[in-house]
């Protein structure tokens, strides 16, 4: 039995554990080789990194809120509808899962870039390019939303399929408005799944690099700062510190919201 675990243990200790330990050690090393926390303190003391951290949180939280608000009705519709397009819609909403972040960024450029389709159409009609926001915060927000939609739908669909239709029907029959049904029936019953979907969306957004690298012109997020520290200025220790900090942030979100979801279930 233990011989079956050997390959995976050897592989992961060499290719995951040892490298992460070395990353941690580098992050605690100063320029002279001494032990230091300066690489972490930079997140607070350096205006650029503080900005990047705040930007990361800002775009992750706002795209997650949008994704949940959009995907909850979607999950309910896909699980409950008798429409013959149901399966096709479900498949269509999983396709973005297999797209890398860079491709998603390019999609935003095709839609809202300077020569994107929407600005082109406006140019034809009004003679002026409008909505060419691909390279701003709003373009990045759309890209983040794009990769969060399939993730949120997948998590929420599972929970909706376990939710009793009778509860919704009964409250509708008793005269509850749709708004009340959402607030008083659906939201409380699905709150564990919503927390779960939020943790997946936030974690994905914190780590997202491809979308940001393709779209960012000035709106810097942490993964971009890590990449440029490593490839441009070769400050390995600083890059390691920011990487570990980003990892801790992601793990904290996954565990914190996961724990909250479990509590909501009880």
């Amino acid at each position: 039995m233990s011989s079956l675990a050997m390959p995976v243990l050897i592989l992961l200790s060499l290719a995951l554990i040892a490298p992460l330990v070395i990353l941690l050690r580098q992050s605690l090393t100063g320029e002279g080789g001494q032990l230091t926390l300066a690489n972490y303190a930079a997140l607070v003391t350096s205006p650029a990194y503080r900005r990047a951290l705040l930007n990361s949180v800002l775009i992750a939280v706002s795209s997650t809120a949008l994704a949940l608000a959009l995907c909850l009705p979607v999950a309910i519709y896909i699980e409950r509808s008798v429409s013959r397009y149901r399966n096709a819609l479900a498949v269509a909403l999983t396709i973005p899962l297999s797209l890398p972040g860079i491709v998603i960024g390019f999609f935003v450029i095709l839609l809202f870039g300077l020569t994107g389709i929407v600005p082109q159409i406006f140019l034809l009609i009004t003679g002026e390019r409008q909505f060419n926001f691909a390279y701003t915060f709003w373009g990045m927000l759309l890209g983040y939303l794009y990769f969060q939609i399939p993730r949120a739908v997948l998590v929420l669909r599972g929970a909706v399929s376990a939710l009793s239709q009778d509860v919704i029907d009964v409250s509708r029959t008793l005269g509850a408005t749709p708004w009340r049904v959402y607030l008083d029936v659906i939201l409380p019953a699905l709150s564990p799944a919503l927390l779960n979907a939020a943790s997946v969306s936030l974690a994905t957004a914190f780590g997202a690099f491809g979308t940001a690298a393709t779209l960012s012109r000035g709106f810097r997020v942490l993964p971009l700062e890590i990449a440029s520290l490593f490839t441009e200025s070769f400050q390995v220790e600083r890059a390691a510190g920011l990487s570990i900090a980003l990892t801790c942030l992601t793990v904290a979100v996954l565990f914190g919201l996961g724990r909250a979801g479990e509590r909501a279930q009880r």
Partner: peptide, 19 residues
Amino acid sequence: INVPLAVPGIAIALALILA
């Protein structure tokens, strides 16, 4: 086995290259 799900891809890459 599931650790990489919580670690951003660029952190995994940076760790490997430093090791």
